[in-house]
Design a protein around this nucleic acid. Structure first.
Lengths: 140, 140
DNA sequence: CTTTGTGCAAATTCTTTGCACCAAA
DNA sequence: TTTGGTGCAAAGAATTTGCACAAAG
């Protein structure tokens, strides 16, 4: 499952994005993370490693990746945006109690569920479920 | 399809919410609107009608309704929140070009599409599709 | 009277912008 | 040497908070 830095670098180049040190580090971090990090979290995590990094660069870079379709932005929590490097088709669940965000596998593609899409061109889809996660259900 | 003010008032009372003039007007507006208004839009629309109304009250009230499960909040556009009074199970589409947000009918419930929900308690679901609407597809 | 609702102004937070400096092709 | 990237400080925008006054039970 682990992808090499060289592969990630190639992926950036293929998308027409120059692989600067910052960009590659941010790309690697978001792609390998299972945590759906916010820009702030990415920044904190890479600050030391990179020696120099600004939050502005993180914001710029994440936006660049989203626009290029390399990662996606989640708005499942209305109080912050987070980012997802998982390229597989999947849904998201957010626990109302502990705030965890987890990936869920799909039985089928999103659009199969929707009627009347004639004439639409769909480029992105997100299914957000909210409630209580198994852990929080128990001690409810 | 049109619901009377009296019915909406009863619905508020049933939810344990006192039907003040402002609350009833906001509730009616969001329920009857097909436009997925933002707090700002609700405010602008009702300012004249009510004579006195503050944006704070609109924010407070919409939050109250969402928490009571009377309406839902959409985060399909990451730059603003909007609200939806449509109680039927449906998905949303947002056009990347013109910004319109439209309701889409579902063939099935959201959860039927997702695997591994054992142990989860789902209280809310949103399916967001993005791309180009038929109108913008044509003149693309 | 006592609790609840409203609304102004100020504060907060997340994100973007303008601009100067730096780095790579 | 020209184009593109980074990062600081400041601006911007959406939402929330604190507090005083008004209204309803």
């Amino acid at each position: 499952m682990e992808v090499s830095r060289a592969d990630l670098k190639q992926e950036l180049i293929a998308a027409g994005i120059r692989p600067s040190v910052q960009r590659l580090a941010i790309f690697e971090y978001v792609r390998q993370s299972c945590q759906h990090p916010t820009a702030e979290v990415v920044y904190e995590a890479l600050c030391d490693e990179l020696g120099s990094l600004s939050l502005t660069t993180v914001y710029n870079t994440l936006k660049l990746f989203v626009d290029a379709g390399l990662i996606s932005m989640l708005t499942i929590d209305d109080t912050f945006r987070c980012f997802d490097g998982n390229r597989k088709d999947h849904a998201h669940f957010r626990c109302n109690k502990c705030g965890c965000i987890v990936d869920l596998k799909m039985k089928n593609e999103f659009v199969t569920l929707v009627e009347g899409l004639q004439g639409y061109e769909i480029t992105d889809a997100q299914l957000y479920l909210k409630g209580l996660c198994p852990h929080c259900c128990v001690k409810k």
